[in-house]
Design a protein around this nucleic acid. Sequence first.
DNA 1: ACAAGCCATGGAAACGTTTCCACAGGCCCG
DNA 2: CGGGCCTGTGGAAACGTTTCCATGGCTTGT
Lengths: 361, 361
Amino acid sequence: MTHKSAITIKDVAQAAGCGVATASRVLNNSGSASADVRERVETAARDLGFSFSAIGRALQSRRSMTIGCLVPSLANPVFAEAVQGVQAELQGSGYQLLISCSNYDEAADDAALEMLLSKDTDALIATMVAPERSAALQLAGRRGIPVALMFHDPMEGFVTSYVDNVEAAREVARQFARLGHRRTGFLALRFSTSDRSRNRYAGFLAECRAGGLPDPALIEIGEAEARQPDRLAVILGQHPGLTAIFASNDFLAIALQNAARLLGWRVPQDMSVAGFDGIEIGRLLEVPLATIETSPEAMGRQAARLLLERLQGGAPVQPPALSFHFRAGATLAPPTPGKGDDGRVAAQPPSAPPAETAQQG
Amino acid sequence: MTHKSAITIKDVAQAAGCGVATASRVLNNSGSASADVRERVETAARDLGFSFSAIGRALQSRRSMTIGCLVPSLANPVFAEAVQGVQAELQGSGYQLLISCSNYDEAADDAALEMLLSKDTDALIATMVAPERSAALQLAGRRGIPVALMFHDPMEGFVTSYVDNVEAAREVARQFARLGHRRTGFLALRFSTSDRSRNRYAGFLAECRAGGLPDPALIEIGEAEARQPDRLAVILGQHPGLTAIFASNDFLAIALQNAARLLGWRVPQDMSVAGFDGIEIGRLLEVPLATIETSPEAMGRQAARLLLERLQGGAPVQPPALSFHFRAGATLAPPTPGKGDDGRVAAQPPSAPPAETAQQG
DNA sequence: ACAAGCCATGGAAACGTTTCCACAGGCCCG
DNA sequence: CGGGCCTGTGGAAACGTTTCCATGGCTTGT
């Protein structure tokens, strides 16, 4: 108790007057032991305040009971929630979570993964800049370490927990089109380092084309513009003809509205906006945000479950994409005739009330 | 490479035709070795794809190079950012982060801490429901494991990284009073499990009294009310006389405005609102949120730094509280005369323009 | 009453690493 | 030319645990 530490099973065995093997059996409830010695060992362990050394155990069992988790950043609530989901699912399984962040840096990604691997993690969960190029990820696979990806589309050799960004983005495009929007834009943050962002654009673009609409404008911005409304406003001002913009995430969608306000544009009258992710605050705003609702928490849970199954000997099996859900919001309305656009009225004016939801998955 | 795994230093030594001791010395650049054998060992290690087993090392060195971190939940961006700060500060130190969440449950708190301890973590960072009652925390202290708290006020026997919630809340009360508000309220979520919430109320109450104002109404709500605007509106409707409400965090402040809207109250004309934390979205809203800005990221970084210093042999030293900053916002205005209140005009009408900021720490 | 089996038990090996120690050879200096 | 001292090297112990195996005593069935 008052000692520095270091009460090993050897101390317990000595205090109980038995061998370490016996003490181990008693404390693990494995093998047999007489009531007598069982009592002595348990008392000794309690009195000495003994607790197992996970390291000793790990060394002998070749399992660290640790799962490594790599995400771009915990400052992004989407990833934080996913990790929370992983954590929740791991509760009670005996596995602990070792986390690492890459800050959206591809080199850091690989380095962090290697670090986790060198820590003898029993399994890995990762969201990366470019999983398809990651040497460390390949290495993990070759070593037979179970790996689950999160947020990424299915990829040869790895299971993943994901939402179909392409399909979700198509849904947004359909909503825009149904309201009569023709000149649209896609506002992207971290386009080069996020396959999610790229997939959303790809889906949006594909559906616009499928609907006979002009290609959406791709507006790429950096961190700085995202958090400085005046700078974002300048960029937005360079795209005057757009009547609806799809932002690659909800935070961006809110920042976008702020920038629009600086330009004197009203949402949704002068410009419609849709986001992605479905963060809860979006629902509470004075003008509720139209967005694609997803559940990062469920994604984390699923990824963790996939790993646990494999750790228990199951075969890797790729589950279907998680469902998403279009959340209607007041940031979305038909374009004001004559404003910005080329003046043509939408081919299909919104006769039906806006669909509340679209399910997929 | 194609093997399951398990290339140990023994294999490297064998391949290089030397003893394991020599291989260890070469690979660690400790002790001496001839250029000849050095070359052979390095080649062998590279060819075999050898990497050290952290477990073997930990067992022998008695240091796991792992730091445990316990927070209530990663779904709360405040804690997620703090962990991100911890993570960032630990980068390059060689320490890895083992995280656990208690979901605001006191029993889970203690269990999780014990779990982390049993994993042989070299140090601990924790935010708990009740650190002063935690047996596991005491145990860690007795074992000589460096511990740093986060978000908690200084506490005998432990260093902590924190912001002075009492003082910050007093600042909010002063801002309210300066604008002429008299009948105020404090909206609290998780009052019983969060000393932060309680301290904020305590400071708010103290300053109201110091300013000769009536005691603020304490409005406690649960998770359910926080995320269902209609239910929150019902509760809010039971407190008709209040002209300004201080919400214990920004999310709550936004939900509160939503509820007010449902009641037909305008913010700030019918009711002023202030939050706490300073989340970024608050700045981007159409009606920017008045709040206390803090930096959870800095808190995490500081906590991590404290631990690293102690792990390098430094003595524990309690740093001063981190600074906070009152962020003015459009949710705050003088009360409309005659509305709700007892009709008396504030003793000190706001002659000076609202102070932009208040610094502390 | 004796063989066969079961139960309780402890010694020892193994896991992967670092480090202490011992040993051998070569060098310098007296 | 011999003693002391570095340098390079490898064997072995230690870290804390689990598990294999051997041992010895006891029970059970014939």
